[in-house]
Amino acid sequence: MTKKMTISKILNSKGDKPLVMITAYDALFANLFEESADILLVGDSLNTSFAGKDDTLSATLEQMIYHTGAVCSGSPASFVICDMPFGTYTTKKEALKNAVKVFQSTQADAVKIEGGADKADIVKHLTSNGIAVCGHIGLLPQSVRSEGGYKVKGKDEASALSLIEDAKAIEAAGAFCMVIEGVKADVAERVAKSVSIPLVGIGAGAGVDGQVLVFSDMLGLFEKFTPKFVKKYLEGASVVREAVAEYAKEVRSREFPSEKYSY
């Protein structure tokens, strides 16, 4: 079993070794990722990757608690972050109530909150009450409908300065790290240098403090579309199809189960 990552180690990684974060939604894959990943993110992306939804907004707190519990069970040595789903942190009181429920119902190490300076008061309220928070700035998947799509950030100086302001506000509110998504690489690097906590990028270039990918994307299992920033490390969908096709062929020909696989 690998030694569990801690908040202190995450903070100390700044300027040293890049953090490796990957999404996980169940015990099976969490266990497979445990050896290589520093952090497992139970993302609300589960509803786009596995529930066939067009965006993440339909994810519920109950879903996130269920999947976070499964990930924690499958990978007890991993540092696990639970995405707070859309609509669960609109006020400080509601955010704390729901985050406490996550902590009491699972072994999650932290929760993740989308938003910049506009969410700093909520992040501060959580961190002041014993809830470890990972921020999330830049492209915000939970704002996709209000913004009319997934739009890359940091395309001009005003946007760059706004992102820096967001990062500083979330750091001041007590977050121990941040995800920065869908941001021009040069701007993301500026943002990372503006704060003392690690920024984990997704579609934000190599000049940040770590990387995160959705595992079904990087393993080539999700075929609906592939974002520009995703590198496929496995053609997973093809591998699975071939295996299932072979199984089906052997069943139909009565080759399986052979004597070797029979009692």
Rank of each mutant, 00 (worst) to 15 (best):
T2M: 05
T2A: 04
S8E: 08
L11E: 05
N12T: 10
V20Y: 05
D26M: 02
L32S: 01
F33L: 04
F33D: 01
F33M: 03
E35Q: 03
S45C: 07
L46Y: 13
N47E: 11
F50V: 00
A51M: 06
G52P: 01
K53Y: 02
T60L: 06
T60Y: 07
Q63N: 10
Y66P: 03
S75Y: 06
S75N: 06
M84D: 12
M84V: 13
A95M: 03
L96W: 03
V100I: 09
K101N: 09
D109G: 06
I113Y: 03
E114I: 01
I122T: 07
K124T: 02
L126E: 08
G130H: 09
G138E: 06
P141F: 09
G154R: 10
E157M: 12
L163H: 02
I164L: 12
E165L: 14
G174W: 00
A175W: 01
A175Q: 01
A185K: 12
D186E: 15
V191P: 10
A192W: 04
V208Q: 10
D209M: 03
Q211S: 13
V212N: 09
V230K: 08
K232S: 15
A237S: 15
R241Q: 14
Y247G: 00
A248R: 06
K249Q: 13
E250N: 14
S258H: 05
S258K: 07
E259V: 12
E259D: 09
Y261T: 11
Y261L: 14
